[in-house]
Simulated assay, not measured.
Amino acid sequence: METPSNPKTEDYTYKQGQYSPRKRKDTTPKVNPQLAVELVFQELKRVEAYTKRIEDATTKKVEIDRGSLESAENRLKNVLADFERQGNRMKNGSYVDKNVSMYSILCAVFSLLFACLMCYLWVDAAKDRDNYKRYYEYFQQEQNAK
């Protein structure tokens, strides 16, 4: 039996009764070249359509992002302008904080009410003193006489 050094390249000869490999059938499908080209072009068109859709969506996203960025920038500018206005008011002395002014007004009102109450009690006590003054003087005279 002959054994070649490289069975792929050399032609072998087999003795009778020895197993010989069957010829392989060609399993590669036969393709119509024109049909293959058409299929490739269809696939390319589909890829181009997807690419176009992705580009359009990206453009819309960028436009939306740009719009939201501009609106956020405008809001920030408004807030900064408000801070500047408040700073100018504070520099000019015309700035009044609403909470502080409300507490100040409440304190002033309660102070006035308390002052009015004290005045009323003082005046009432003075009237009583005037009413009882003659009795007090009489009692004092009797005490001194004893």
Score class of each variant (00 low, 15 high):
91 K>W: 02
15 K>H: 01
8 K>G: 06
60 K>A: 14
34 Q>M: 10
3 T>W: 07
14 Y>D: 00
88 N>K: 05
87 G>D: 05
84 E>A: 12
146 K>L: 14
9 T>D: 13
126 A>S: 04
97 D>L: 04
73 E>C: 12
38 E>Q: 11
142 E>S: 04
54 I>H: 07
103 Y>M: 11
25 K>W: 10
63 E>D: 13
145 A>H: 07
53 R>G: 10
25 K>F: 09
42 Q>S: 05
67 G>T: 10
42 Q>A: 08
72 A>W: 10
104 S>P: 00
10 E>S: 14
42 Q>E: 10
69 L>N: 13
41 F>R: 12
115 A>H: 03
68 S>W: 12
61 K>D: 04
97 D>M: 04
17 G>I: 00
68 S>K: 15
79 V>F: 07
65 D>G: 13
105 I>W: 07
142 E>G: 03
104 S>F: 08
84 E>I: 06
19 Y>I: 03
67 G>M: 09
119 C>H: 06
22 R>Y: 03
115 A>M: 11
27 T>Q: 11
11 D>A: 13
20 S>A: 07
60 K>L: 15
66 R>F: 12
90 M>C: 00
44 L>K: 13
122 W>K: 05
125 A>C: 02
50 Y>L: 15
143 Q>M: 11
14 Y>L: 07
109 V>R: 05
12 Y>P: 10
55 E>S: 12
138 Y>S: 02
68 S>N: 15
10 E>P: 01
142 E>T: 04
52 K>E: 15
22 R>D: 08
63 E>Y: 02
5 S>M: 07
135 Y>G: 00
3 T>A: 12
34 Q>V: 15
94 S>C: 04
119 C>T: 10
146 K>S: 11
105 I>K: 14
37 V>Y: 06
134 R>V: 00
129 R>K: 02
11 D>E: 15
44 L>V: 11
50 Y>V: 12
56 D>G: 09
115 A>Q: 07
87 G>P: 00
70 E>L: 14
91 K>V: 04
100 V>L: 09
7 P>D: 09
67 G>S: 14
10 E>M: 15
35 L>N: 12
111 S>C: 03
